[in-house]
């Protein structure tokens, strides 16, 4: 945070929270899902639901899903571009005071695969955070590369993860892990200075107790 937060960001109007932040949520959600999808359900909560249309929140989110940044002048035409690219999306609205005022929930669908849930919030000044991936409560905003791991709740997994990171000389800025007792599984979220190399991701996936590895690059300088 410094002078370029005062003179900037460069963005498509009208609102840093309802337009710029919204596009960023869409952008990050598509990075989290990380592959082509057949359709996506987009649920807007509270202020996003009530004033979203006037702020272009809906267009901005679709633009973000299409890979557009917050300063992309095609954002106002996102619906038309989505149609050309055959991206299917459905909007829902929800008014629930226990949810963040500017929240979005995505449910991605692809073929016969299970649907995939991502949730994000816009926190002002064009900044946004992903707050949920599938069952896992998370919090990241693109300032770091992220590694999101789901694995069997067995001893030695943290050590295994640490060994791989050490082998590839990856420095960890932040790490949190938690167990989901009901599902006999656990998750860890790691924030890294640089994107985890794909070879390291493969090594992590090769452990039979590792259920899911999501690796996301950081957005710092592009946003």
């Amino acid at each position: 945070m410094a002078i370029f937060d005062v003179i900037g960001p460069i963005m498509i109007g009208p609102s840093s929270s309802h337009t710029a932040g919204a596009s960023k949520i869409g952008y990050m959600a598509s990075l989290v899902y990380g592959k082509h999808f057949d359709s996506v359900e987009i649920k807007l909560y509270n202020s996003f639901a009530s004033t979203g249309r006037g702020h272009g929140t809906d267009r901005a989110i679709v633009a973000g899903l299409l890979g557009m940044k917050m300063d992309d002048e095609r954002i106002p035409y996102a619906f038309e571009i989505a149609k050309q690219k055959n991206l299917k999306y459905y909007f829902r609205k929800s008014y629930k005071p226990d949810h963040h005022p500017n929240e979005v929930r995505f449910v991605f669908n692809r073929g016969t695969e299970d649907s995939f849930l991502v949730r994000g919030i816009s926190i002002g000044a064009g900044k946004a955070q992903i707050t949920q991936v599938q069952e896992d409560r998370v919090e990241f905003g693109g300032d770091h590369a992220v590694l999101l791991l789901n694995y069997g709740d067995v001893p030695g997994m943290i050590g295994f993860i640490g060994d791989i990171l050490g082998k590839y000389k990856i420095n960890v800025a932040y790490m949190q892990s938690a167990r989901n007792a009901l599902q006999m599984s656990a998750m860890a979220i790691l924030k890294l200075d640089e994107l985890c190399p794909s070879t390291a991701v493969e090594d992590l996936k090769n452990n039979p107790d590792m259920h899911q590895v999501i690796s996301i690059r950081k957005l710092n300088n592009e946003y």
């Binding site: 937060d5 005062v6 003179i7 900037g8 960001p9 460069i10 963005m11 498509i12 109007g13 009208p14 609102s15 840093s16 337009t19 710029a20 272009g56 267009r59 300063d71 002048e73 954002i75 106002p76 000044a125 064009g126």
Partner: peptide
């Protein structure tokens, strides 16, 4: 007005005040 119409602006310091500077 450009900001209100989804044009590209520099938020200085916010989008709503981007015309002042």
């Amino acid at each position: 007005e450009l900001n209100a119409c989804m044009g590209r602006i520099v938020a200085t310091p916010t989008a709503g005040a981007s015309g002042v500077l």
